[in-house]
Design a binder for these strands. Structure first.
Lengths: 214, 214
DNA sequence: ACTAAGCTGTTACTTGCGGTAACTGGAGTG
DNA sequence: CACTCCAGTTACCGCAAGTAACAGCTTAGT
């Protein structure tokens, strides 16, 4: 027996797991994030307990599912973040990468960020909250690292970089979410507007009429 | 019959509704957002169907509950936003108001923003997603209005103001969420860091060592 | 005073989900 | 051939949302 056999089993288990995840992906993208375990199992051509053997509980499946997309997105963002270019260009490219991703696959995005939507009444969502947050947190932490590592911020730089990392990610996320819902302008314009904000245009702008402006 | 009688009934109904909401508030703050309708009804000293008569479904109760806190918070933010002071001071005051609010009542905050957490396995959360978003959206829109109304942004100012409104709110939210979880620094420092970010300090800072920084 | 609404409240039920226990059939190994 | 693993199944439990259908009290109409 042994190592070879074990690896064989493990391989087949891993393959199965991937198949299950792909099936789950299809269902979630079709039925929205409120898809039931039964539905996912049916799509995969099997029944519930198998899902539970592989993923523990619904949160586990959700986590595994989210991890795939999350990792892919983070990879893309890292690339944009590490590209050789000036800071402004790099910021814009990162923003654009993120926005292009959520624009290209809004279903995935809504699953990651706003699970437990789009269901009929009586719908109970996934095990929300433990997974959408992590994506934003991870993005924030990664951005913080890059900032701290490349930008000279003087004393207290680490703290500052983390605040900024999470703050910028939140800005990107909220603006992207709103933009995705209303599509008030082309992507490039949104990117430029956000970069302008980060570049201090709010502080530089003059007051409009009476009294001190915001 | 009629108006007088109706008003009487309506008054008593409204009072009842308020009592129910207060009971729901207590339960949600005690048990987390996963509280069951049964538990809420029990806290109010009555049983489920009454809740359903008053609020339609769980989403309705949730919405009503969220609206109270949301309105209160927005009121406070409006005050900070409209105070007579310079722009930077006003921005800091608004940030501080928001952060003070979530710091003072983190349970309420988590209920508004991250419902469907803190439950045991098998817990199905509230009807998430339809309510946490609205708060952020409303804040974003209000901020956008204030910006557009007071800051001179040249052509395309309305679009730009909305982008910034949602972006800034998202920044505040994400940074606040992270800060509330880790408490890495006093509130005042967070406020200053975020204001610095909005004031373009990221753009102004120099690169650290090799190559163009972020 | 008696009945008819109309309110608040109840108990008891249905439905549908997440999650689990216990059984079934087939493939490899002495 | 017996024995052990597995993938897989059916059938079930618990629990929460939501819904009848019924019970009592207050109030109005005649």
């Amino acid at each position: 027996m042994d190592t070879t056999q074990r690896t064989d089993q493990q391989r087949s288990a891993d393959r199965r797991r991937r198949e299950l995840l792909e099936a789950a992906d299809r269902v979630v993208l079709r039925d929205g994030p409120g898809a039931s375990m039964n539905a996912i199992a049916a799509e995969a051509g099997i029944t519930k307990p198998i899902l539970y053997r592989h993923f523990g509980d619904k949160g586990g499946l959700y986590a595994a599912l989210a991890k795939r997309h999350t990792d892919a997105l983070l990879e893309a963002l890292r690339a944009a973040l590490d590209a050789p270019a000036e800071r402004r260009e790099r910021v814009e490219s990162t923003l654009d990468t993120y926005l292009a991703a959520i624009e290209a696959r809004p279903q995935v995005y809504r699953f990651l960020m706003h699970p437990a939507e789009g269901g009929q009444p009586g719908d109970q969502g996934f095990d929300v909250g433990k997974h959408s947050a992590p994506l934003l947190r991870r993005m924030g932490e990664e951005l913080a690292e890059v900032i701290e590592e490349r930008v000279d911020l003087g004393p207290g730089s680490q703290q500052l970089a983390r605040v900024w990392g999470h703050g910028i990610v939140g800005m990107m996320h909220a603006a992207g979410d709103w933009w995705l819902g209303e599509r008030p302008c082309p992507r490039a314009e949104l990117v430029r507007s956000l970069a302008d904000l980060l570049w201090g245009r709010l502080a530089a702008a003059g007051d409009k009429i009476g009294g001190p402006g915001f």
